[in-house]
Write a protein that binds this DNA or RNA. Structure first.
Lengths: 244, 244
DNA sequence: CGCCTTATTGAACCCCATCAATATCTGTGG
DNA sequence: CCACAGATATTGATGGGGTTCAATAAGGCG
């Protein structure tokens, strides 16, 4: 149990966690100082460049992680190589699948990422004695389910143009913290995904994504600089183009 | 509090719950006799014919429900009428969205259904004092999320034929309890959905669904009688046609 | 600059949607 | 039991949105 120093430190937040976004809004927000300390003993910070495979489909997963920086994409692949992105995890999202040893998706760093990694066992144990943690996880899971269902509508029923607009609109909401419905009606961000990733997210080809982006650009709905930088002068207009 | 009779009955399962599938494998499996009794005081059984609108998108929802019989479809609709089914709930699934007053999907009886309906308040209160209940709900939510992601792959990347085969394969797994991977390799069931519903589920048109069904029929992958009755002589073959 | 990766643009094709007609099912009443 | 009507499903013909194949352009980094 090696908790020798616990009495001394149990009212202090571990240094690792102090600057962490997940400490407050993420899963770890459910934990008290001493629990946080206990978990942080088994925790490692992992940096990974874009493209790194974090866990493979059908891998046996021994760890969970919180996204601290960057974007993690969850993908599913068919035998012949067709691929679909089924989830994007932004900071401070939790990545992992409790109650199941085998993963049914693969996780990959879409951009350069920083993760807070901890062993499955530690968190599973902590979840059992901390209902509050399951509560947080349930909330995130229900939100992810809402998002997944929103994307099912996009994948099944929207046109290519609406799909691309929907994607940009979603990124704008996720990345640009300054944007609010009633706030300034503009947004700007760097795309965290390549065209290939966007295509895999929207169930389209690279070429169609590219064509729709130029179409939106020519309609003055967006401005693109250097391939990655996107400005949206009128977010509400983009929202309309997205079919919402 | 009106718990006068509780002392007498607290070790007995309410009559309502005794024959209920959800009592064991569903949410209510988390409850002890007396808690079950407490909840059952506010519970009503509701029967509804196919097509009944149970809750509308953007309704304020005051109740939750367990599906006892039949299939409930969760749908999302765009302003111009395009529609997508984003979830199918079979017995003993739970229907509802905790932690959020407003629904983001509408729920409709896909077949004739029987529901066990209880007020949001009652269950919310019970969930707070019963971590085990949140645990069950978390498990269901994570399963639904897995299924939703599976369908995102289907919607985004599969051909019409693969989509229809995937749908039939999924129904076979859900409805026919006799089927197991190594068990007898055949299945038979009544489709709980109309062609229009299947189309809305797969992001296709009615006509395409119909064409793919006849294509599968002519390839001897399925047998259809009277429009609704489907037999699958070789489930593994169907699985291959589904792209898995 | 030069090389490789990533993105855009063009042309032809194809799968699925659309429009339209026919067939089948289901339930009701004669 | 059959006839009828409305709903549901199948089948056919045509067209379009997105894919595919191919070439060019732009970005990133040594």
């Amino acid at each position: 149990m090696q908790e020798k120093r616990r009495d001394i430190h149990n009212s202090e937040t571990p240094a690792l966690c102090r600057a962490c976004e997940a400490r407050h809004s993420g899963l770890c927000g459910a934990l008290e100082h001493d629990e946080l300390l206990r978990l942080s003993r088994h925790t490692t910070i992992r940096q990974a460049p874009a493209g790194t495979q974090l866990i493979g489909e059908e891998d046996f997963v021994e760890t969970y992680a919180n996204v601290l920086k960057g974007v993690v994409k969850l993908t599913k692949m068919m035998a012949d190589g067709r691929q679909q992105i089924v989830g994007l995890q932004f900071a401070p999202d939790f990545v992992g699948r409790p109650f199941q040893a085998e993963s049914r998706v693969s996780a990959e760093a879409a951009s350069d990422v920083v993760l807070c990694v901890f062993p499955k066992n530690s968190l599973d144990a902590m979840m059992k004695e901390q209902p509050n943690m399951e509560h947080r996880l349930l909330k995130q899971s229900l939100n992810e389910l809402d998002e997944a269902r929103e994307w099912m509508l996009t994948l099944g029923r929207k046109t290519a143009e609406e799909k691309v607009a929907s994607f940009l609109y979603m990124i704008a909401r996720h990345i640009d913290p300054t944007h609010d419905v009633d706030a300034q009606n503009a947004a700007a961000f760097d795309l965290p995904l390549t065209r290939a990733d966007i295509a895999d997210f929207l169930g389209l080809t690279i070429e169609t994504v590219s064509r729709q982006l130029t179409k939106l650009r020519k309609a003055d709905a967006i401005v693109i600089e250097a391939n990655r930088r996107v400005s949206i002068p009128d977010v509400m207009r983009l929202r309309e183009l997205s079919g919402n």
